[in-house]
C-alpha cells in the first residue's frame, strides 16, 4: 500500500510540474503584459518603466525557473494589477468559490442521487423519463442563459432572492442551482447504472428472498454499494467546478476565484492567471490523489496491478 501511495504521489507531482510548465509557457506567448498592466490611459513612459521593473526582457526559461522556485516556497509573485501578493489574492477569493462549489456539489448530489435511485428502481417509468430529460437538458442549456432566466424570474419579478453579491446565504441560492445543475447529469447517470447493477446481483436477491423490507434492502444494501463510484465522480466534478464557475461568478457578481481568473485574463495579469491555473490544477490533482488512495485502500486489486 505504501509503495502504491508513493508511486501515485510521484505521478501527482509530475503532473503538477507539467501543468505549471504548460500554463507558464502558454501565457508567455501573450501580448506584452506591460501594456495591459499600465492600463488604457498609460503613456509609453509608464509602459517602459513597468517592462523593466518586472523583468519582461529576460529569456523565458529564466523567467520560468525563477517563478517555479518562488512558487514552491508559496510565493506566486505580485499581481500586476492589484500589486498585492497573488497567494494572498487567491486566499482571499477562494473561499467564495469553495463555498459555491461545495453548495453546488451538494445540490447536485441531492438532486441526482434520489432521481438516479428512483429511475433505477423503476426503469422506463415517468420518473426515469423526467430524470433523463432533466439530465439531457443540463447538457444543452447554456449556463448564462439559465442564470439570467433565474434572475429575471426570482429577483426582478418575484423579488424573492437578491440579484447578486455574496453577503448572505440567500445570495448563493441561484448560483448554486445554476452551477450544480450542470454537475447533476453525470452523477445521476452513474447512480442509475450503479443501482441497476447492484439490484441485479445475487446478494440483493438473497436479501429480498429473506424477506427484508424493500427500503432496508434499497438503502442499507444496494445504495451503499452503488454510491462508491459516485463519491469519486463527485470529487472530480467538484474539481472541475472550481475552474468552471467563471460564467456563474461573472453573472452573479460573486468575486470568487473564477471571476478573478477571467478578469485577470482580460487584464493580462499573468502572475494571477498562472497562480490560479496552478491552484485549480493542484486542487484537482490532490482530490484525485485522495480518491485514488481511498479506492486502493478499499479495493486491494487496484494497488496490486
Amino acid at each position: 500500500m505504501i509503495a502504491y501511495a508513493f508511486k501515485r504521489s510521484i505521478l501527482a507531482i509530475l503532473v503538477a510540474l507539467t501543468v505549471s510548465m504548460i500554463s507558464f509557457s502558454l501565457l508567455y506567448i501573450s501580448s506584452d503584459p506591460a501594456i495591459a498592466m499600465a492600463g488604457e490611459t498609460a503613456s509609453d513612459a509608464d509602459i517602459e518603466a513597468i517592462r523593466q521593473l518586472y523583468g519582461f526582457d529576460r529569456p523565458i526559461v529564466v523567467q520560468y525557473l525563477d517563478w517555479l522556485k518562488k512558487a514552491i516556497s508559496g510565493d506566486l509573485g505580485k499581481s500586476y494589477y492589484f500589486r498585492t501578493d497573488v497567494s494572498h489574492l487567491i486566499a482571499e477569493r477562494l473561499p467564495t468559490t469553495m463555498t459555491l462549489g461545495l453548495c453546488a456539489i451538494i445540490f447536485a448530489i441531492g438532486l441526482a442521487v434520489p432521481l438516479g435511485v428512483a429511475s433505477a428502481i423503476r426503469p422506463n417509468s415517468i420518473i426515469d423519463r423526467v430524470a433523463l430529460f432533466l439530465s439531457v437538458m443540463g447538457q444543452a442549456l447554456p449556463s448564462f442563459w439559465f442564470a439570467l432566466i433565474l434572475i429575471v424570474l426570482f429577483s426582478v419579478n418575484l423579488r424573492w432572492l437578491p440579484v447578486s453579491g455574496s453577503d448572505t446565504w440567500l445570495h448563493f441560492v441561484m448560483p448554486t442551482i445554476v452551477l450544480g445543475y450542470y454537475a447533476a447529469p453525470a452523477i445521476m447517470r452513474l447512480t442509475r447504472t450503479g443501482m441497476l447493477e447492484v439490484l441485479s446481483t445475487d446478494y440483493i436477491r438473497t436479501a429480498r428472498a429473506k424477506g427484508l423490507r424493500p427500503p432496508v434492502v434499497l438503502f442499507k444494501h444496494a445504495l451503499r454499494n452503488a454510491i462508491i463510484p459516485v463519491v469519486s465522480l463527485a470529487a472530480v466534478q467538484f474539481g472541475f467546478m472550481l475552474g468552471g464557475s467563471i460564467v456563474v461568478e461573472t453573472i452573479f457578481a460573486l468575486h470568487g476565484a473564477g471571476f478573478l481568473a477571467w478578469e485577470s485574463i482580460t487584464r493580462n495579469d499573468l502572475p494571477t492567471v498562472q497562480g490560479l491555473i496552478l491552484a485549480f490544477s493542484l486542487f484537482y490533482i490532490i482530490l484525485t490523489l485522495i480518491a485514488d488512495l481511498i479506492n486502493a485502500w478499499l479495493d486491494p486489486r487496484i494497488r496490486i496491478s
Binding site: V19, S23, L26, L27, G243, S281, Y284
Partner: peptide, 12 residues
C-alpha cells in the same frame, strides 16, 4: 484533466 479547460481556452 488537471487543467481547467475553460480557463485555458479563454487564455489562448
Amino acid at each position: 484533466l488537471s487543467m481547467p479547460v475553460v480557463l485555458v481556452a479563454l487564455a489562448v
